[in-house]
């Protein structure tokens, strides 16, 4: 009995400390997972740098600079980057909806809801949190060079590129 109470408290405490991944990407900007393979743009990036917070499409990551575009292209010196979060696709909210639906369906279990209800509420919440991190890659927890593959130009900025012509992907 005491052990079960302890487990419940630990589970709730874990939920309190965990939270869903957030992004500043405008609604509808990110592709669905099924369409990422044909998306010709970079992922959404939120860069916290010494210049402040800079968000937009990740254009390229080079040895000394990170290139981000919104209305225009901006270069941020790698030395100035404090942290960075790239979001590659839209994780959606269907797991959260599924958790709600599963909890409602579990009501059909009668008294067994005492088991299946918490399973859905706690387990579903953890699954939703886990899901929100599926499309997310963070620096410094990930190597900066490895994040280049989520840029519009994973090979680096082309030498002949007119930097003034680069604009971020327009929201769908």
């Amino acid at each position: 009995m005491r052990n079960n109470n302890l487990m419940f408290v630990i589970a709730i405490a874990c939920l309190c400390f965990m939270h869903c991944a957030t992004t500043r990407a405008p609604s509808g900007w990110l592709s669905d997972p099924d369409n990422v393979g044909k998306d010709v743009y970079g992922g959404w990036v939120d860069v916290t740098s010494r210049q402040g917070l800079i968000s937009g499409e990740l254009i390229a990551v080079e040895r000394d600079s990170v290139y981000v575009a919104k209305e225009h292209l901006r270069a941020i010196a790698v030395a100035d980057v404090l942290d960075m979060r790239i979001t590659v696709f839209d994780a959606g909210s269907k797991i959260a909806l599924g958790t709600f639906g599963g909890t409602v369906l579990a009501l059909s279990n009668g008294l067994w809801f005492l088991l299946t209800g918490p399973m859905w509420i706690i387990g579903g919440s953890i699954a939703a949190i886990y899901r929100s991190y599926d499309p997310v890659y963070d620096f410094p927890s990930s190597d900066l060079r490895s994040l280049a593959l989520f840029a519009r130009f994973p090979q680096g900025l082309p030498a002949s590129l007119d930097r003034n012509s680069i604009k971020a992907k327009v929201r769908k």
Partner: peptide
Amino acid sequence: FCGCVARTVER
């Protein structure tokens, strides 16, 4: 619904 909607991508 659960199996189909939560896809992830490995690039």
